[in-house]
Design a binder for these strands. Structure first.
Lengths: 125, 125, 125, 125
DNA sequence: TTTT
DNA sequence: TTTT
């Protein structure tokens, strides 16, 4: 059976990333990327915004926790996953992006030509 | 501000697509694509599956409604969007894929070499 | 038969774009994007760089010709195509990216937080 | 500086893949994928076809050499690279896709629903 | 819950 | 809610 799963987003962090550690000591970092759609032509409709919850692991998680903060622009590349859990006996689910590669695109409102780096999970050139 | 939004998935329809029409007569078709992850190594954890709700519009929506059904393999290419609504006074949201391009990959369990077509939204070669 | 063709690159213009017009008056703009690979670990090997020749048409071509110049960072999204021609009786070919969407990512060495725009071919959100 | 490089193609092998081994014994497999564009509306112009030279390494290269042959449909995901060499004192270059992930989509003209596998480079779900 |  |  044929399966493929790839998402590429560019946008801004809605808040500082949250880093935690698993029992075996490896980092897991969560953050949300806001990706704006085009300005709506209809003045009564607000612009479309995608708020995408993201997770990273390992080295990438370390880098994200260390270098990114609220408002920073990033490009993320990863695979979508349905997260499932129960809350008050109710089944809940949401789509999360498991990010393999993060490209830092500068700081919030700062120079773009230069200072970024890449946190390249396992996706080498 | 820099934004980009692209998702490419390959998987199978979880059910027959649901076609409806807007007031102005254009088609809107909803369906869900199941994308399997790799078989889990841990026998106690079930395999990861992504269930991605998809929407299509216009000509693509017509084609999807006409040619696809439960189980059929497809490749979809589109942009993610956060859908928001209220239910019993509670704010709800979920991520939906607005599909621009659908590639039919044959019918459920049928020959793949030949019979597919493409429903190419506005994304021409 | 099933076909799909998508390329997403982020890099910098190697030179000012070249705009021309077709007989029917629509714009065609050519440019090349340099995409750097990761720094080579082997000090004797030079870093990998991709030089990708790109073409754009219509409104996107106008915008590229007007707003981009040598060194500017961009994200491009499009489809690859094999260009063929004859030179001195020899058959030549090369791969070119037909760009549908260009995201301006600021000017060479300039602020990134703000001044970019998007030239969105036919790929609406 | 911000760089990103991703290509996703679906098409058919133009010939049997060619496997060789590096001095250190790891496999390198070359093949070309033909990706058809939409049927040309102009009957005098032949349809666009992309012929993309691809390389794979390691485990993926083994799998490609073992399971794929001329005509087989595949999805490939990777990064573009400019290959340079000299021929008769002339500098030559061409674009090649360094494939990280290969999805087998069945055999030439065979059933698609079932028999494929994935050769997942380092790009796990 | 949200970013620019 | 789920597909192969």
């Amino acid at each position: 059976m044929a399966n493929y799963n790839r998402t590429i987003l560019m946008g801004n962090l809605t808040a500082d990333p949250e880093k935690r550690f698993t029992k075996d000591g490896s980092a897991v970092t969560n953050f949300t990327v806001a990706v704006n759609g085009p300005p709506s032509k209809d003045p009564d409709r607000e612009d479309e915004v995608l708020f995408m919850p993201c997770v990273t692991f390992g080295k990438t998680a370390e880098a994200v926790g260390k270098y990114l903060s609220k408002g920073d622009p990033v490009l993320v590349d990863g695979r979508l996953r349905t997260d499932k859990w129960e809350q008050d006996g109710e089944k809940k689910s949401r789509t999360v992006l498991r990010v393999g590669l993060v490209q830092f695109l500068g700081r919030k409102g700062e120079a773009s030509g230069e200072p970024e780096g890449a946190s390249d999970g396992d996706l080498s050139f």
